[in-house]
Amino acid sequence: MAKEYSGDRPTALYTSAVTDTPSNLAGAPPTEPPVDGPILALDSGSPVVSVALGTAGDVWGSRSVAQASSSEALLGLVDELLAEHRLVARDLSGVVGARGPGSFTGLRVGLATLLGLHQALAVPAAAVPTLEILAAWTAEGAAGTIVAAVDALRGEWFVQTFEDGEPPRATGAPRCVAARAIDELAPCRVVGFGVGALGGPGVDARPVDTLAPAIVRLAAWRPLEWRPADLLDPLYLRQPAVSRPA
């Protein structure tokens, strides 16, 4: 079955009235990193959706909600979190999201929200691959290989291997594997939502509860790439389930 859709094609190909490139973000400043003000981090593609507030490395607070009710609740969580720290939207100096893989719709809700904030506040924006955030979540004291894992459904997982470090260093590209293939990576530490069910001998499964705080921590370890165009390009890692009619 041929998969005809490719999100890799430039936007201009699809548009009639518009000829701009995806990197042309209305009202976007250059991609200077935030200086020292608070950044808002958001993970909307995971089974538990979370938002966190802090400066690089210092998490001030976070909120979370189940994926199922997240599209309505997400912005309210952001509002609550800011209010708790006596802040308003205009006090933010950067916004950063988890870029996927994860729930297709969930990722878009989060990244579209950040896109709106980026436009409204003219603050720097970034999106970080979810597998990198997962690796950072567990890095401390990891023995051997870290396997960041996101449930790809249908008995498959998106995985990427990392070696211990601050931040952890990727030793392979993201790929989609059957659940049992993760055993072959042992000895390793597997980190992700719902990984408790995974793992045979030598697999140290570390289930994750929320991920947004890890984005703030990651920012302390390495400079984030403040590239707002990444908000437009979630790492779905899977084509839409559609094939060209015969």
């Binding site: 936007t11 548009t15 701009d20 490139t21 995806p22 042309n24 990244l111 436009q119 908000l231």
Partner: peptide
């Protein structure tokens, strides 16, 4: 999502 920035611009 891809088109929004260009369309709004």
């Amino acid at each position: 999502l891809r088109n929004w920035p260009a369309v709004s611009a």
